[in-house]
Simulated scan of single mutants.
Amino acid sequence: MISNIVKILRKNAGLTQKEAAEILKIEQRSWERYEAGDRIPSIQNLELFCIKKNQDFNEYRNKINDYLNSKKKSL
């Protein structure tokens, strides 16, 4: 779920995974793991990415929060 959002954000910005990672000052491998669903980025990092690329984060916020809350409940 979040992996799809991460990929959409990057593609909407017209960036490669490397370029997207550079915006957040993280390793490319970390971004790759976000898109693969192996790691979950912080909401703050996703929001920062949107701010830096002039994308509206609000349309994604509810989907991300719903997903994170469902994960917490299943623990």
Rank of each mutant, 00 (worst) to 15 (best):
N54E: 15
Y67M: 04
T16K: 01
K72C: 08
S70C: 07
W31G: 00
V6T: 13
W31R: 00
E27D: 12
I26A: 01
K52H: 09
R10P: 04
S30Y: 08
I40Q: 06
N69Q: 11
I51F: 14
K11Q: 13
S3N: 14
I64S: 03
I5A: 04
R29Y: 07
Y60G: 09
Y67W: 11
R33C: 08
Q17I: 00
K53D: 05
S30L: 11
E22D: 14
Y34G: 02
I51H: 12
I40A: 03
D38S: 04
R39Q: 10
K71Y: 10
N69C: 10
F49E: 03
I43M: 10
R61H: 15
E32G: 08
Q44F: 13
K18C: 01
I5K: 00
K11E: 13
I40P: 00
I40L: 05
R29C: 05
L75T: 13
S42P: 07
E35P: 02
L68A: 07
F49Y: 14
E27L: 01
I43Q: 01
Y67G: 06
R39D: 09
K53T: 15
Y34R: 05
E22W: 03
L68Q: 02
A36R: 12
N12V: 07
I5E: 03
D66G: 11
C50N: 00
L75R: 14
R39S: 09
N69F: 14
D66N: 14
D56H: 11
K73I: 12
I23M: 05
E59A: 13
L48K: 15
F57S: 10
F49P: 04
Y34A: 01
R10F: 02
Q55R: 09
I26F: 04
